[in-house]
């Protein structure tokens, strides 16, 4: 069971604003979902087992500089909600 305070804490961590209506429906839905996934606690497992899928393993490569063309740079900058010249504009932090 999840309390409204716990839910608010999660929303704070996830950086999502919640309305009172959201909180009401989410606590209810969380109860039903957590009630379900809590069954996992009954399974006997050794917790050192790693959930590795198939033959997939870490792949590393050397760091390298990739030069982006001016056109691609323009395209990327154009996707920002706000830009000033060659920069993505955000609110002042300090």
């Amino acid at each position: 069971m999840i309390t409204v305070t716990e839910l608010e804490k999660l929303a704070e961590l996830a950086r999502i604003k919640l309305t009172d209506d959201d909180k009401r429906s989410l606590t209810k839905e969380f109860d039903s979902i957590l009630g379900y996934i809590d069954q996992l606690k009954k399974v006997e497992v050794s917790l050192d087992a790693e959930g590795r899928v198939g033959a997939v393993k870490n792949v590393v490569r050397a760091d390298g500089v990739i030069v982006t063309s001016p056109e691609d740079r323009e395209r990327l900058l154009d996707e920002a909600p706000q830009r000033i010249g060659e920069f993505v504009a955000v609110k002042k932090i300090l």
Binding site: I2, L13, I16, L26, I37, L40, S46, L47, R52, V53
Partner: peptide, 29 residues
């Protein structure tokens, strides 16, 4: 939003072993 919050919950400290780690172990099984 529901899934982001649920994910934040199962990964948060205190629940990580009970949910995420355990789920990975069962995934292997």
């Amino acid at each position: 939003i529901r899934r982001i919050l649920l994910g934040t919950y199962v990964l948060s400290s205190g629940y990580y072993d009970a949910y995420y780690n355990r789920a990975n172990a069962v995934r292997k099984m």
